[in-house]
Design a protein around this nucleic acid. Sequence first.
DNA 1: TCATTAAATTGTT
DNA 2: AACAATTTAATGA
Length: 250
Amino acid sequence: MSLVPDIHARSELEAMLRSSRWAAALSADELDLVVAESYERRVAAGACLFSCGEPADHWYGVIDGMLKMSLSHADGRQSTFTGVHEGGWAGEGSLLKPGIWRYDAIATRETRVACVPRHTFERLVSSNLAFNHFLLQHINARLSLFIGLVEIDRLLAPTARVARCIASLFDPDLYPSKGWNVRLSQDEIGQLSAVSRQRTNQALHTLEREGLLAVEFGAITVIDLPGLRSYVDESADGTSGKPGLRLHNA
DNA sequence: TCATTAAATTGTT
DNA sequence: AACAATTTAATGA
C-alpha cells in the first residue's frame, strides 16, 4: 500500500465531502469548516457502525464499501431494509430530532465512512437554506424508496423483488455513484430482497438472460436500470405470489 | 512469480 | 438444508 496512508485517506475523505451533492449548497468557508470538523472511520467487514438504541450523534457518508440497515429480532431473525454504498448518506432522520438510532448499520465488507458530527450538521440545518433544500429532496427520495419497498414486499414475486431491490441501490437522488458495479454476494442480495439465496441465484440468472444485468463472482453489474426498476415477472397476477394482498382495494 | 492451501461464494439438488 | 464446484486471498518457497 501507500507509504503515507493517513494523508491519502484524509484526501479521499476530503474529496468525498467536497464532491457530495450537498457540498454545492455551501459557501467555501462553510465547506472548509465541515471538512475540518469531519473525520474518517473504518468499519471492518461484518462490524457495526452503530446499533439500534444508541444515541445518534453523527451523519455518515459512505466513502467506500457498503452499509446495510437492518434490525435483528430477539429470536435471531434479521430483516434488512436497504443498503447504502459509495456516495450515499445515512442518518439524517435520527439527527433531525434529539434521537436514537432505530436500526443497525452493519458493513457488508470493509467500509470507510465520513463522519460529520451532529453539531456540524445542526449548524448547517439552522443556517443554510440551500442545505435544507437538499435535505428535503433527500428525505423525499428516501420516502419514495420505502414506499417502493412496501410495494415490493406485498405485490411482487421473487425475481421482481430481486430486480427492484437492486435498482433501489442506484437511486440517483440517494446514491450518486459512478459505476454500475456492486460488490454484493448473492447471499446479501437475498437478504436485501427478502428472498432465499437459492432463489436469488435463479433470479439473477433470469435477469442476466434478459440482459438487465451481468452476474460476476461476488458482484453484479447493472446494465439496464430502467428495466430493473420496472420489472414485473410472469406471475404478477397474484396467483403464485403473496396471497391476496393488494394496495388498491379500498 | 508460482504452487499450495484455506476460505468464501456459487450452482445445483 | 446439504453438497460439490469454482473463485479468491493468503502464504511461503
